[in-house]
Amino acid sequence: MRAERIWGAIRFVITAVSMFAVWLLFTASFGTFSLVAGAIGSLLIAALTYDVFIAKHQANLRFFLPNPLHLLIYFFVMFFFIYQSSVVMLAAVITGRVNPRIVHFRTRVRSDVARMVLANSITLTPGTITLDLNDDHLTVHWLFCDTHHMKAAGETVKGRLEPYVQRIWL
């Protein structure tokens, strides 16, 4: 019981601090009224929604606190991947040679946030769309399918993204 209350307090503080950071980012002013209003608002919203913002079973700080350096690296890596697959996609639109197929595979990343980011990155890359995400099982529509082996398909679709995500979140 005591551990649960401590965990709840930690989640509440993290939610409130994130809310306040976003408030500072949006208002971009350091007046007294703005700071007090932001603090009261973020505390109120955190008290209402901390259970939704960070689920109870995500019982590790590394599950939702990102590694900032690797997050920055991932941002630029993602830009590179988007442009790389956009050029492939451009050629496919012109020639019309596509081989679409639905593939299923599982991911190694463990936290909900990391899985969400992985699925979103797969959708963001032109050529692959995530259709469904159940726990660690991803259903992906892949436009340039060249294999029937589902594990090989998974390695091609997510193989280069997954190590970067694993370094940001656990």
């Binding site: 988007i82 442009y83 956009s86 996609m89 451009l90 496919a92 639109v93 012109i94 019309g96 596509v98 679409p100 959708t123 963001l124 032109p126 050529g127 692959t128 769309i129 529509h141 436009l143």
Partner: peptide, 30 residues
Amino acid sequence: VIFGTAGLAGLFRFSDPYTRLQAGSLCGTT
């Protein structure tokens, strides 16, 4: 401009919803 035009062309070239969404992601993302 190039990617947007290609995405719009793909939206009309391809045949089923998934493939059209792929072309739309070229338009809407890149």
